[in-house]
Write a protein that binds this DNA or RNA. Structure first.
Lengths: 157, 157
DNA sequence: TATTAATAAAGGTCAAAGAAAGTCAAAAAT
DNA sequence: ATTTTTGACTTTCTTTGACCTTTATTAATA
């Protein structure tokens, strides 16, 4: 019962791989192919191919319309610097933080394992109630981290 | 008559045995199967599949949602298990946390790089003033992390 | 022929419905 | 008194569909 949106996401990513990070597609065609509502394509794009995820999207309506998806292969230091100075700011939601880690993994700044650990480290679950005590928070983070290491290791064979 | 929660517990454990310590299940499906309230599944998980019991749980809501249960390899990861159940507790100083990470690296649970990153993640500097806001804290952690990646990479050739 | 109007062919938006899982506290059982 | 069971309510994520806007093509008109 895999989510259709995930399937579509993977499909697009594989197309992107074949075509060197850039592709044009027909929304209706794709929707036909997956037998879904055309707007589901928009949903997939909106939730999995945002700027945060490292993709840029252009489109055109009318006859001969298209949707162009471009994977941004930004220079690594530029990207990191951008994150530090603008991208993150003073507060960041769990969701966005996860997206950033995902992207860092996809761009191979960090290993899959590190990504997994770091996600665990910054998850809401890990940070817990904003109890006023630093040491408290850190303890939570650490525990979550260790759990993650164990889970990771007994996960993929 | 055996308590239903116990039956469900055993059922899940037998599933885990068949699937090598890892499985995904549908909460409602399981509840249907046992003709109980869905929240009873949560109850079973919360009381019998906790970290202390050696299990790790991830889940996702919405269409195609799931609950994933991972049995942690407690025996093989003696040290980690000790940390989780006794070693860390509710609060931990920066110093001790760092020592733990060092040791995890030495025991090769994590790579040198990961260790470096994680230290950054849980440092006093990263967690900052215990501003009452979770997102705040997380943002700090993330930034610190990114700095760490950059530092790490421009350090060792 | 050049301009304008109609039609078709895309893609966009948004909100409602659906499909999970989470929470919490009251009631029941032990 | 403690543990278990139940259920009402909440939150998150996905899917669907009705309606809207933009662009291209074709038909009609001046």
């Amino acid at each position: 019962m895999a989510r259709l949106s995930d399937v579509i996401e993977e499909f697009i990513k594989s197309l992107l791989k074949e075509s060197e990070g850039q592709l044009e597609l027909q929304r209706n065609e794709l929707a036909d192919f997956f037998e879904c509502a055309p707007s589901q394509i928009n949903y997939v794009l909106a939730t999995r191919f945002t700027l945060n995820h490292g993709y840029y999207i252009e489109s055109r309506r009318g006859g001969g319309g298209y949707i162009r998806i471009v994977r941004l292969d930004v220079d690594r230091n530029d990207y990191l610097h951008y994150l530090l100075t603008e991208g993150i700011g003073n507060r960041i939601s769990e969701q966005k933080a996860m997206q950033i880690i995902d992207r860092m993994k996809e761009q191979e700044y960090i290993s899959e394992k590190a990504a997994y650990l770091l996600k665990a480290a910054i998850s809401d679950k890990a940070i817990g109630i904003p109890a006023n005590l630093k040491d408290n928070i850190r303890a939570n983070i650490l525990k979550s981290l260790i759990t993650a290491i164990m889970a990771y290791d007994s996960k993929k064979p």
